[in-house]
Design a protein around this nucleic acid. Sequence first.
DNA 1: CATTTATCACAAATTTATTGTGACAATTGT
DNA 2: ACAATTGTCACAATAAATTTGTGATAAATG
Lengths: 187, 187
Amino acid sequence: MPHPLRQHIEKIISLTDEEFDFVLSHFEQIKKRKHQHILQKDEIANKEYWIISGCLKSSFFDNDGKEHILQFGMENWWITDYDSFINQSKSKIYIDCIEDSELLYITYENREKLTSKMHKMERFWAKKSKYGRIALQNRILSLLKNSSKERYELLLEQYPKLFQRVPKKLIAAYLGVSRETLSRLNS
Amino acid sequence: MPHPLRQHIEKIISLTDEEFDFVLSHFEQIKKRKHQHILQKDEIANKEYWIISGCLKSSFFDNDGKEHILQFGMENWWITDYDSFINQSKSKIYIDCIEDSELLYITYENREKLTSKMHKMERFWAKKSKYGRIALQNRILSLLKNSSKERYELLLEQYPKLFQRVPKKLIAAYLGVSRETLSRLNS
DNA sequence: CATTTATCACAAATTTATTGTGACAATTGT
DNA sequence: ACAATTGTCACAATAAATTTGTGATAAATG
């Protein structure tokens, strides 16, 4: 069966075997265990990760040390701090594994190389980026217009798996409520 | 009471208040939680850490994925991969926290600066380095001449606290025996 | 001012990690 | 070749850490 990354990319653009091999040659594969981070504050994100298996979160710690989760990442998702990655600037966020995970990553330099040599992949990432932008916009809207109960229900509807996989306190940190409030939303 | 790092340094050289403040200004303080790493394979160790509180280990993973522990680090110890730090080359080792820890670190650049401006500190680190070398040599000798039971007893005698603080499987990875064998050394 | 939420405290439940031990194969030194 | 030591696998008991729900109360929100 085809490489999972190929399946993923071919949802947007199609590739020959040679093209995919060429793409893949720009990636490295690594394993990370639960709790291990792949990016921390003040580092420059020079890698973009694609999740083969496992689960990660990208989060921000406020001055009180409280964690706010920007994004969860699961199988077939991309994750990095795009602010830091694109601008090659210091990151404010922290990305770590919620489960043992297998990851593919492409460095900033390799992505530049690849997109310059292969216009198709430029298009792929451009499209990805558009979708990502829409998702972010929707998240902002949801934070503005929906109550925490509504946000909870929307998330549950959209990603029911997440609730079986990750502790509720992390869901709470994603929804922007305390874990106690989240717990009481059930009743 | 004086800063713990000052107490530590003054065991070897003496410092005025101004001198110590100057030294300290080259360090940064950070907190790390259990499981978090401060160095991983293929990174360049550009920081040397001094442990205020907590416990860390520096280890190497062999081809079978088995962990071999080079060194534990506790309060008032220094830790980094000196091979990588001194030569500013890619590290082969992994350093992570066994407990939540508070650390001071000095970057390679700052250490260069500090030692060039303050000869005393050059002497301090030179002496530290000598002691470290002796400790390493003794460890090698012990691995060569002592049985695992003897190495176990020597470690227990020298660092009894370690056995209360860290899981036996890590002691085993330090002694170079399987955790089962270590367990049976008790009887 | 009513409602919602955060915070603190606590205990129960659940999950992970640690530890010892038996059985047996592999390795080592003599 | 043989005895002793150790590694590996499997399993169960224990211990430790994490997760979860809930009450009480204060703070904030609209």
